[in-house]
Design a protein around this nucleic acid. Structure first.
Lengths: 186, 186
DNA sequence: ACAACTGTACCGTCCAGCCGGTACAGTTTC
DNA sequence: GAAACTGTACCGGCTGGACGGTACAGTTGT
């Protein structure tokens, strides 16, 4: 018993969030605190030390994802690109490459959908979506192109939720197509 | 007690599915059998008479939606349209008009996402998606157009899940844009 | 000395599934 | 034609187990 040899509390927190993430996407919101703790290699007491309640854990989970996505998109803006649509292009790349690699973003939506029963999370997502809309609108693309490209990018993220799994090659082609659409104009 | 005067059992079943649908989208998969029964104006025993377990109820729910969507799309194919892309156009119309009217399809995705914790439902959705892919591929559109238009339509259905609510006017414009894309070629 | 835990024990509540009834509509038997 | 029986469509109380949260005493790294 006691602190696990030289473990950073931040690491523990991250391990808890990661375990929670995977469990929520497997079992939905009915994932158990016990399970989350066990998978993270932490006791239930330890979990409740970091997150005072299940509600708080789920909220942290959602916050974490939204922020990761935002950071990923901002990081995907090439420094030498200052043409209109640079942010939209980064958004497209992260959305589709997230769908390409089997891991992260693909399932994030499932989790957010699961969490949508938690009111606070719904509100969080709504606020975040609004912010995206403003940021992307300020990116200088004509509205028609913007809504088309955005819908398509979001569609790719969403399709796996209802069992649609486009071939990687098809996704690559679609990505290039979308990127091209954001450049046609000047 | 006993049979409520002249009530059709099919009506009861439908009422149960409807109640379940609305409750699942409000509270997620943790919606209670008691709640579902109460909202449908039936006792818990009555519910379990129609659906032997919660699992069976959820499965029936998913089946019901997938079929409704398919029927809606098939009904949206204009009889006088036999140009390539007729099915895709119907798919687009149903997807976007479903998002336009605040009621049905918009939330269906949330529900499916909730139900995705039920393995049988995941499998069901996967099989259905595959069938769509075949049907739509057989519709005679070039692959590039197909995947773009499909992704965009699916994106519109999905966006409300994470709090994005495009303006109705924007959706109408997007719909026309997508429909036009399916006609450009011949 | 304090932060970061572990482990155990426990409480209260919620809920799925079960079960013993009940009410009626047909159907059969005499 | 009426009593006896049968199947369908429910009602509602109960129970056992799971789960969130509490409490707290002990342990260990820094």
């Amino acid at each position: 018993m006691g602190r696990t040899a030289g473990r950073d509390p931040e690491q523990t927190r991250a391990a808890l969030l990661d375990a929670a993430s995977r469990l929520v996407r497997e079992r939905g919101i009915s994932a158990t605190l016990d399970d989350v703790a066990r998978r993270a290699g932490v006791s239930k007491g330890g979990l409740l030390y970091h997150f005072a309640s299940k509600h708080e854990l789920l909220l942290a989970l959602a916050t974490d994802w939204l922020e990761r996505f935002r950071v990923a998109v901002l990081a995907a803006v090439p420094p030498d690109d200052d043409a209109p649509g640079r942010l939209v292009r980064a958004y497209v790349r992260v959305s589709i490459d997230g769908a390409l690699d089997a891991a992260a973003t693909r399932d994030a939506l499932v989790v957010i959908a699961h969490l949508s029963t938690v009111d606070a999370v719904t509100e969080l997502a709504r606020a975040d979506a609004q912010r995206w809309q403003e940021d992307l609108r300020a990116d200088g693309l004509p509205e028609d192109v913007l809504s088309l490209v955005l819908a398509a990018a979001d569609g790719v993220s969403a399709q796996p939720v209802w069992g649609m799994e486009p071939a990687p090659e098809e996704l690559t082609r679609l990505r290039e197509h979308l990127l091209a659409l954001t450049v046609v104009d000047r």
